[in-house]
């Protein structure tokens, strides 16, 4: 077999940390699916146009709705959709698909923690989503919508931290929903349901303070507000002092709780419904 000697086939690229390597590979995969991913995000931004004109009409009569001014509201809409574009429909579908088809077995025979592996994959895939989203926000935000800058440099830093926590929160929520695939065949239905719940309770469609009275307390305290409402609130400087600490504390506490739940639920779900193969 002469091929090996004639061409330098084995390069020595150096070792990468395990989960980083997985994330990088997932990013490469996402690039292969780029049309799918980008189309999904652009489709998502049509919602922004609809909400933008809806709210503009509402603000024609008044200068404030709830605590929002018109410039705060349009900033909110744009950021909310930009953030919610992370971990989109295709990514969630892939997580569920791996469980449905039994492809998770491949990850299980490797020296990897399943939850961390999934997070690394999702984070890698989100790089493309994030870059696309960020570009659109920047273009629209500066050119068309004229969004507000962060309330302060401090708010900008906290925003980045809050976005990171929100990202993992969304991952954990989608992961926990994906575990239901062990019991149900309808992954697509689950995914749509998950999407609807996140859109409402995270504050993506409507800011939480404008939700109907019976739903508001649920959304105020649910972990899903950490995905959109909390980081955007931090960006706009809506909460300060004690309230700000409370918001970020709530976000961090849910994160820890959901992580623990996912870490424990995963092997149980796997073993509760393991099916007999040949």
């Amino acid at each position: 077999m002469s091929a090996a000697t004639s061409t330098p086939v084995v390069t020595s690229p150096g070792r990468r940390p395990r989960y980083l390597a997985i994330a990088v590979t997932a990013a490469q995969q996402a690039v292969a699916y780029r049309i799918n991913t980008v189309a999904g995000i652009i489709g998502n931004f049509f919602w922004i146009a609809i909400l933008y004109y809806l709210w503009r009409a509402a603000f024609a009569e008044t200068t404030r709705i709830g605590s929002f001014t018109w410039s705060e509201m349009r900033t909110y809409i744009l950021l909310a959709f930009g953030l919610n574009a992370l971990i989109g429909f295709p990514t969630a579908s892939r997580m569920m698909y791996a469980i449905r088809t039994g492809d998770i077995v491949i990850d299980m025979v490797r020296p990897l923690n399943y939850l961390r592996t999934q997070l690394a994959q999702v984070a890698g895939a989100a790089v493309l989503e994030g870059v696309t989203s960020f570009t659109i926000i920047l273009a629209l935000g500066i050119g068309v919508v004229q969004i507000l800058p962060p309330a302060s440099p401090f708010a900008a830093v906290l925003f980045v931290i809050s976005v990171a926590m929100g990202f993992v929160t969304k991952f954990l929520f989608v992961f926990l929903v994906a575990l239901l695939c062990f019991w149900t065949i309808n992954a697509v239905g689950l995914n749509w349901a998950q999407l609807a719940v996140v859109n409402v309770l995270s504050g993506t469609l409507v800011p939480i303070e404008l939700l109907p009275g019976w739903l508001r307390p649920v959304a105020e305290w649910s972990p899903l507000r950490g995905i959109v409402a909390t980081p955007v609130g931090v960006y706009l400087g809506q909460d300060t002092g004690w309230d700000l600490t409370l918001m970020l504390g709530l976000q961090a506490s849910w994160l820890v709780l959901l992580w623990t739940a996912a870490d424990r639920a995963w092997p149980r779900a796997f073993r509760a419904v393991e099916i007999q193969g040949g």
């Binding site: 940390p17 390597a21 077995v105």
Partner: peptide, 22 residues
């Protein structure tokens, strides 16, 4: 089932496995 990555060149998949198994 394959343990390769569908859209990733085989070389990259090997490298990733090298990383995973350290």
């Amino acid at each position: 089932r394959t343990q390769l990555w569908w859209d990733i060149p085989v070389r990259e998949a090997f490298r990733l496995l090298g990383d995973i198994y350290e």
